[in-house]
Design a protein around this nucleic acid. Structure first.
Lengths: 164, 164
DNA sequence: CATTTCTTTCAATAATTACTGAAAGTTTAA
DNA sequence: TTAAACTTTCAGTAATTATTGAAAGAAATG
């Protein structure tokens, strides 16, 4: 199989994965396309490769930049913007987990903390659930934070130790 | 704040969380409702509490059972089915991670393995990306598997050690 | 500063996903 | 059995989310 065919499958799979994890398919596809491209690509090239409109391409490239997964590259002598994605899978995973922690997990922790404090305890089982959830999510968030701050090898080493 | 109000907020937040992580809002809301209910609930009661139709309730209860998050309970002398959710947050997290691993992560690992094997290596950078992604996702999957098999305290202890 | 090239926005529309409710199916009890 | 009580299914519809494309906005060029 040619690399180009493999890339197509990879892009499609990455798109599906994105859509089943709550980030839209096109955004993930563009990410996969940029990850698998040796050179930065222009908006035109992305539109062409994925058969999508200019508006769609622009919006999703913006979103990827916002997530810290893609950055602009100016190419000497060229007027238009080019985009490239980081290719280090550890960095990518860190970036995604940091963003999701910030956007989705931390707000839930805050809510749980508030409910735990404010509710009147008239259902003790429910109070216990809140407490346990709060504790659990806070621990998870701490773990992700550690992961985010760690260097490339910490997690590998740790996993090895854990899985011994 | 009354527990009942806190429950409402909790149900709503859990629904939102579900919808931003790719599982539908109603399914997560039913889950939250059952988690925060001291007794098992019937389909009628769920419909009433969340203002949803019979069909919707039925389908999402089915899905929750399928995910291993909810189980049927027969109540003595009652004809209709009742449903209850496990309330141990560690068990819930294990269950969700096991299902997502099975449904979404493992298929990706299989694809990466296949592409890595079959593609012709004509773009060495891309070959490297495939290899690293395959390695990374396999490690993650291994970690989740360990988590799934672990008892309630292993993960806590491990986290403590890691976060020292 | 006028023109060209490129980027962004956003209202309209399309595509997808979720929900309803009624009808069909199943189980239980008498 | 038959009828009542309950569950499941699914075609139609509603709601949500994603996409288009054209127009407006910026930036660079000469």
């Amino acid at each position: 199989m040619k690399s180009s065919e493999a890339k197509k499958e990879f892009i499609e799979a990455w798109g599906n994965l994105g859509s089943s994890w709550g980030t839209n398919r096109t955004m993930s596809s563009i990410h996969a396309l940029l990850m698998s491209s040796p050179e930065p690509l222009s908006t035109e090239e992305i539109m062409e490769a994925l058969k999508i409109s200019r508006g769609n391409a622009n919006m999703n490239i913006r979103a990827l930049i916002d997530w810290g997964l893609v950055r602009k590259r100016h190419i000497a002598g060229e007027r238009k913007e080019y985009f490239e994605a980081g290719k280090d899978i550890w960095e990518i995973a860190k970036q995604i987990s940091a963003e999701r922690r910030k956007r989705e997990i931390n707000p839930v922790i805050d809510l749980l903390a508030r409910l735990e404090k404010e509710e009147d305890g008239s259902d003790p089982e429910f109070s216990k659930l809140l407490k346990e959830m709060h504790n659990f999510t806070a621990q998870m968030s701490g773990f992700l934070d550690k992961f985010n701050r760690s260097d490339r090898n910490w997690f590998s080493r740790t996993l090895l130790k854990l899985l011994n």
